[in-house]
Design a protein around this nucleic acid. Structure first.
Lengths: 349, 349
DNA sequence: TAGACCCTGGACAACGTTGTCAGATCCAGG
DNA sequence: CCTGGATCTGACAACGTTGTCCAGGGTCTA
């Protein structure tokens, strides 16, 4: 009655999802465990004949090294984490891709997560990535207090903040020159004869929004133009409210002849509003938008180079890991004014 | 001379990057290793007083559980991999985000990589992800032979192909109805009076391109219109060649009055070309593009719902992991014709 | 007061890999 | 034939966690 005793065949003997290990390969090839390890890692000191046998066993069993175990042993995971706001946002796609390319060049994989602008979710994600022992972390902050990362930094997790500086800790960061870009954009409108210029942007508690607002004010002040409150709309991003804000600026007691839009989402909505107007209103937007050159008129923008930002951040990350970099630094990348027509319209009073 | 013997202080005694472990926490709290594990995992059977002591030690040391070790022990990594073509492409951003959201709902993280349309790189990435022991894999194939994944599938890695079916293996896949969408788009042009309709698309060895071409041919045949070779341009995606192809169609012996563009990149270039024409040429594009409604005329497109595709794929993945799903299936999601003007232009002979 | 039981806490092995080290094998030279 | 050295191979511990199992001590009941 041996058949009663045989529980099952070899395959189902393994629990669901079990995979061959080096031990299995070793057994099949009739060699020691370490020899398999040597073959898998291309270490020297294995006879061609032995190597062949091992390789055969590997192929036959469909063995694939378990990197979790490897990581545990070696300490480095060869992966980095990227916490951003929303992968679906066209600004972050190229940024993420640039980070990935640099990571790839260093043999690392990229794990990314979207914080959806929620500080708690940012923290949850960043810490989850740390628990996976990513070697480094690129963070586009949603919150403004990053002290929760202190133990991680101390433990040697390389960290670079992007787009906005870290809050309450000292860390590397890579930013666009939001202040300078906005100032240039507004100055451009002023140079084309505008004096009543509207600003629609995000809440000033967001660093980028605050800097862009500061740039707007600076340009106006440089030109000696006093800014009226009704020209500024802050903390407004959802299309409905941007629309209302824009309409109010255009029809108020002191109607604007040009609008500076604080980010790409705002720009898009403003374009829609302006398309409905009979009178020509000038527009400069912060952040480039796709097909901006095909619109009538083309949309003049202050463009950030998302890919360059991502690349710069990732490169700093790996230099931190090298040990080449020690002192946290703040890097500001220049923006570029792209004139396409909408920013060069003269004021139509 | 005790100072000669003292190697260093506590901190640097650890190698670079060393972190406190549960053992350290246990020692500091004066409890056993397993008790720390219990506290960290919220397992029952720990006195509030003990728990407090452990928690204190955790905070003091800045302990964070090492998930690599945990994975090694538990077998599941709570992470899934996504291999796509290019994160910077606006089609993949929302798709990736949708996959991430589903993963998040299941407590999993997302690792993603761009294959850059290179089959070798796709394989390299997919296998690297398997080595990390992701629980599942969502793949947008670049290659057309996926037998390299057989051992992984056998080992229980959940797998869903997206956008294009798997090659030479039997696996779940989630696609758009490329054939039907293209047929509808072309039929729409025919319904508006066009008979000489051009098609510009990718190489037919790419599944989506082949299906869309098939849809084009079907619509033409349904209408009893024989297709001339000069109306079709296949394997053309880079802007320069698309431009040339479009111009040739428009000026050839049998000039087209409408163009069907096989994907978003082609559409964008065709828009540019048409903008330079004096005569009005109708256009329907496959894939929606941003701001398509703001152009003059608005661009009529056959839209795929990238988010829905990602969501569907990810949900199937987790149902595979549940064990709810066993038989590989091919799911086709409907497309939607969005009329905005460019597709409704009458033929201008 | 003893026995049975429950609750808390800890010792130990195991997960799959790599680093260390020592043993085995082989060949050349004395 | 033996020795020395070089080359190849394998046993074993360790990485940090979790699952299993058992011990100790307290409480409740007979």
């Amino acid at each position: 009655m041996p058949e009663t005793i045989r529980r099952s065949d070899r395959l189902s003997e393994n629990r669901y999802g079990n995979r061959p290990t080096m031990k299995d390969v070793a057994a099949r090839a009739g060699v020691g465990l370490k020899t398999v390890s040597r073959v898998v890692n291309g270490e020297p000191g294995v006879t061609p004949e032995t190597e062949r046998r091992v390789q055969e066993a590997i192929d036959a069993l469909g063995f694939r090294r378990n990197d979790s175990a490897r990581v545990l042993r070696k300490g480095r995971t060869a992966s980095i984490g990227l916490v951003l706001e929303d992968l679906a946002d066209p600004f972050y796609g190229p940024l993420s891709r640039a980070v990935e390319e640099v990571a790839r060049a260093h043999g690392a994989l990229l794990i990314n997560g979207s914080s959806a602008e929620d500080p708690d979710r940012e923290q949850e994600l960043a810490l989850a990535l740390c628990a996976r022992r990513v070697d480094g972390l690129v963070i586009i902050p949603a919150g403004d207090d990053h002290r929760y990362l202190e133990p991680e930094l101390k433990a040697g997790v390389a960290t670079v903040f992007v787009d906005r500086p870290a809050g309450k800790i000292d860390a590397d960061c890579v930013l666009s020159d939001n202040y300078g870009g906005a100032r240039d954009g507004v100055a451009h409108l002023i140079a084309h004869g505008h004096r009543r210029i509207g600003f629609i942007g995000d809440m000033p508690r967001i660093h980028t929004a605050a800097e862009r607002l500061r740039g707007y004010r600076a340009a106006m002040e440089d030109a000696g133009i006093p800014v009226e409150d009704s020209w500024m709309s802050l903390g407004v991003t959802d299309p409905e409210r941007v629309r209302r804000a824009a309409e109010e600026m255009l029809t108020g007691p002191s109607p604007v002849t040009a609008i500076f839009a604080g980010n790409n989402r705002v720009t898009v909505t403003v374009i829609r509003v302006l398309a409905e107007q009979t009178r020509h209103v000038a527009l400069v937007g912060f952040d480039d938008i796709e097909l901006a050159d095909l619109l009538q008129p083309g949309v003049t923008v202050v463009a950030q180079d998302a890919a360059a930002i991502g690349r710069t951040a990732a490169e700093r990350l790996f230099r931190q890991l090298d040990g080449t970099l020690v002192t946290p630094e703040r890097i500001e990348l220049p923006t570029r004014l792209i004139t396409r027509g909408s920013g060069e319209l003269p004021p139509a009073d």
